[in-house]
Design a protein around this nucleic acid. Sequence first.
RNA 1: GCCAUUGUAGCUUAGCUGGUAGAGCACUUGAUUCGUAAUCAAGAGGCCGUGAGUUCGAAUCUCACCAAUGGCUCCA
Length: 506
Amino acid sequence: MDDKIGEGAGSSVYRQGDFVDLCRGPHVPTTAMLRWFKLTSTSTCYWKADASRESLVRIYGWCFATKEALQNHETLMREAAKRDHRKLGKDLQLFHIDEMVGQGLILWTPRGSIVRNELQDFISSHLRRQGYNQVYTPHIGKLDLYRTSGHYPYYQESQYPPLVERDLMSKLADEGCSCSELSNRMDEGEIDGYLLKPMNCPHHIRIYSSQPRSYRDLPLRLAEFGTVYRWEQSGEISGMTRVRGFTQDDAHLFVTEDQIAQEVLGCIELVQVIFGTLGMDDYRVRVGLRDADSSKYVGESEKWDKAEQACRDAAASLGVPFTEEPGEAAFYGPKIDFVVRDVIGREWQLGTVQVDYNLPERFDLTYVGADGEKHRPVVIHRAPFGSMERFCGVLIEHFGGMFPTWLSPTQAHILTISEKHIDYADQVRTALREAGVRVEMDTGDDTIGKKLRTHRAMRPAYLLILGDEEASNGTVSYMGPDREQINGVALADFVASIQAEISSRS
RNA sequence: GCCAUUGUAGCUUAGCUGGUAGAGCACUUGAUUCGUAAUCAAGAGGCCGUGAGUUCGAAUCUCACCAAUGGCUCCA
């Protein structure tokens, strides 16, 4: 009780029949209020979340005061289940996870790759506008790089174990080196190996240090859709939202101290633009600070204080409410996270902006100031989408698989009434393709009813229906994203309007 | 990783207390050429997650492993 409830803080006790519960509450005054209930699942958990203790059975259910409220909730949950990205990902052929490839490793299929590419193009266009430089770095790096960055000791449990060169391995085997000895000698830096990169920052930092830098070069903004690998416990892995290999829309901004506020703000504005375009307005802002257990973090306390204050100031200038949460910081610095809620109420951390005084120190980064002296830059880490995998997973659910036209894997599906209309359909397809529209065509011998049923299921932005009427007048009839039907639009007009819709990303 | 549940064709699934598999959709072929959410018919497709064990005999029972789902813990 002492460590759960702080000194002087209030506590409450609830009673229901013979059951007495010490709980923050609130509880309902009486279970008589919960007339309608349904048990939904059972699971286990541990007393005080300690896996070494015996497990307890937990029973989950829904209860409501009225039958209608319960039924409404059930309907809502059924609708939410239909939007599950794991289900839609399979039905709409957006991605595949293969047992033979491995748990938590996403295979992007052609349709899903289109969505990802469109998103990447979208963000890249904003980065160019904001003066970012695109870079590419490899997927592995020497262990020594991560010893310097601090990832190796501080982030070890989240990493795949190091790769050791073949010759070195056989030499160590000849010497009778045991696995635990190997591991110890790697920890002590006697043996080097390569690590699958868990983060992109060390590589980007080495690009910074590859040249002498002047204050005139700053801010230097290095961006990469960088793929990283993290060892997640098998039970954590889920669909696209929690995986072992993922691509961050990453960038590292090398700035002077007085550029921090402005650059952090620039990052946050980018996040807001992106969320705004995609209609994601159910998100909250979290300022992640370090907690009392200082062994989890690298760097000196006064640097942390400065960085935490910078994050607070930036969040405050946003004009949206934010929470400060101790223990949510990265191991090298505090951060501002954008947390979105999915259709079933789960929260996902997507975009993140982190202020880092520590890595510049560890890598001895410098720039020459106007005074001719060497100064230490500050690094801002930022990933407005978080990772392409998680972001696409959340987006699939956000849109229920019905992507806006610019993101839609196939933007127009052409359906013919009969084989008489194939020639005209070909013309329509050519016109759309030349306008850069992604088209699919069904000239098969199914009835139009069947074709509509089949193609609607794939959720294209537009369904075009072509028959005698359209072929003889050079028009199209279509159902747009709202599935309202519009008939007899001149082909050229339709092409122009869909093209405008796509290029404006509306 | 821990606890629980689950694993039958590309998808959704039937298969009772053990006697080596059925269906719908999708697919292929043929017929049909059709105006708004399933045209008709035929065909093909399964070592029942993997490996052991019990048994005369295992999709079915036992064990181990793999994977998924729901939680716990952790995270982008």
